[in-house]
């Protein structure tokens, strides 16, 4: 059994979502408005990557503002052992700085990922 949607790189859930959207759109006006409200999705997501051995990486890898960097440097000079332990294992990545807290729209990301997946299969 070969599915056209699978060849196009869609997941089953995505396929269902598209099918559901089509059905909702083909309803009569009053019913359609109600039904489309049930299909709304406005989520954002973020991928978390643990940067191993971050501590003293390249400047752009340091995910904190300038004040924190200066503070960290001072602290490092004072207590090298403690500071490196705390910061190098990335435990201070509160999630909001830099890459980790970046919230991307889930819908567009899903589409992009599947398009990419499909492109990879086609070649």
């Amino acid at each position: 059994m070969a599915f056209a949607w699978k060849a196009a790189g869609l997941t089953y859930n995505r396929y269902l979502a598209v099918a559901a959207r089509v059905v909702r759109r083909s309803l009569k006006e009053d019913k359609r408005l109600q039904a489309e409200r049930r299909g709304e999705m406005d989520l954002r997501f973020a991928k978390w990557e643990v940067s191993r051995g971050l501590g003293w990486g390249r400047p752009e890898e340091r995910r904190c503002n300038l004040g924190e960097i200066v503070l960290r440097d001072i602290l490092f000079l004072l207590w090298p052992d403690r500071v490196s332990q705390r910061w190098q294992n990335g435990a201070d990545d509160g999630g909001q700085n830099g890459k980790q807290g970046e919230n991307k729209s889930l819908a567009s990301a899903n589409e992009a990922a599947m398009a990419e997946h499909a492109g990879g299969q086609g070649q």
Partner: peptide, 25 residues
């Protein structure tokens, strides 16, 4: 924080829809 691979935001504004669940899945 080391164990987190994904996080989603924008949940709980309204009653969750099945579309939400699908996108997360």
């Amino acid at each position: 924080s080391k164990q987190i691979v994904l996080s989603f935001a924008g949940i709980g504004k309204d009653v969750p829809t099945f579309a939400d669940a699908q996108a997360i899945a």
